[in-house]
């Protein structure tokens, strides 16, 4: 019963470099886990993911290179993808597939309209988002109603 929501630029390249900036990084060497804490910003191309804490899980692939399995942002999470912004409590970004799943009072703002729900799944490469769970679309009264596809 998901409602589609357009989410930013479709040319997202999930093989572009990922930059993570934070106050601190703790690495538990044996488990291949990196915990970024404090004003964490994950940037890949036009996509920006903000969070209080971002856990990155990585492993060595067959070729012996390190591959990030997923990026898990927790606390005051915001996902920007060019134009739209989505806010929630928690977001998991699987780098390889370019999919971000955000949960916890998700709010997507598009211009004046906002859409609220419990779970938002965004395909970064197609720019298509699926909002699920008590989806509510809030029109901004001043602006004339916009058709949501």
């Amino acid at each position: 019963q998901g409602t589609e929501v357009g989410f930013g630029n479709p040319e997202h390249d999930s093989s572009a470099p990922v930059e993570v900036v934070a106050d601190q990084l703790d690495v538990q060497r044996s488990e291949g886990k990196a915990k970024f804490t404090g004003n964490v910003v994950v940037t890949q191309g036009l996509m920006k993911l903000f969070g209080d804490v971002v856990d990155v899980e990585y492993a060595e692939n067959a070729a012996g290179d390190t591959e990030i399995q997923w990026v898990h942002a927790i606390g005051n999470v915001t996902l920007l993808n060019g134009v739209e912004a989505a806010e929630g409590d928690d977001a998991v970004y699987t780098v390889e597939s370019g999919v971000v799943v955000m949960t916890g009072d998700v709010l997507v703002t598009q211009g004046e309209n906002t859409m609220a729900g419990e779970k938002l799944t965004v395909q970064l490469e197609t720019g298509v988002g699926q909002m699920e769970g008590r989806v509510r679309v809030l029109f901004n009264p001043e602006s004339e109603p916009e058709k949501t596809e």
């Binding site: 999930s14 990922v18 930059e19 993570v20 900036v21 106050d23 703790d26 060497r29 044996s30």
Partner: peptide
């Protein structure tokens, strides 16, 4: 014994996915 490496006072990591 677990060895922890902590980077403090601002950290920046740039990961380049292997295509």
């Amino acid at each position: 014994e677990k060895v922890t490496v902590v980077f403090k006072d601002g950290v920046k990591v740039i990961y380049t996915p292997q295509t």
